[in-house]
Design a protein around this nucleic acid. Structure first.
Length: 103
DNA sequence: AGCCTGACAGATA
DNA sequence: GTATCTGCCAGGC
């Protein structure tokens, strides 16, 4: 389809994010690597424009911290669904326990 | 084409 | 711990 490449990529990114179980997270890089195309920045681009329809708070940066522009809201939602954090007062997700590979 | 920007990542100081 | 740089891929001008 025309300009379909972009929309198709958007669809694929959103479908992966949609499948992330509650209490788990994926990094931007993980999503891109799982799809086998694009990169962390492309996933970020998709989320910024179409992420509103999926559990966007389950996509975090590689260090376990949500993106800066919605950090507070994301952390609140992650805590609400029982996502493990690096510390009680930490704003970083415990990646060793919460990281999901997409399988 | 060139240049800047970005919900990123890794390395380095 | 923070600050900065480079690599990455795509969009907008």
């Amino acid at each position: 389809m025309a300009h379909g490449a972009r929309e198709e990529y958007v669809e694929q990114v959103l479908s992966v994010v949609e499948r992330i179980p509650a209490g788990r997270v994926m990094t931007y890089g993980d999503v891109a690597e799982f799809l086998g195309k694009g990169g962390p920045r492309q996933v970020g681009w998709v989320m910024s424009h179409f992420g509103g329809a999926v559990p966007w708070w389950r996509v975090v940066r590689a260090d376990g911290r949500p993106a800066d522009c919605h950090a507070g809201e994301a952390i609140r939602r992650l805590r609400a669904e029982g996502t493990p954090f690096a510390g009680l007062a930490s704003e970083r997700v415990d990646m060793a326990r919460a990281r999901w590979d997409g399988a």
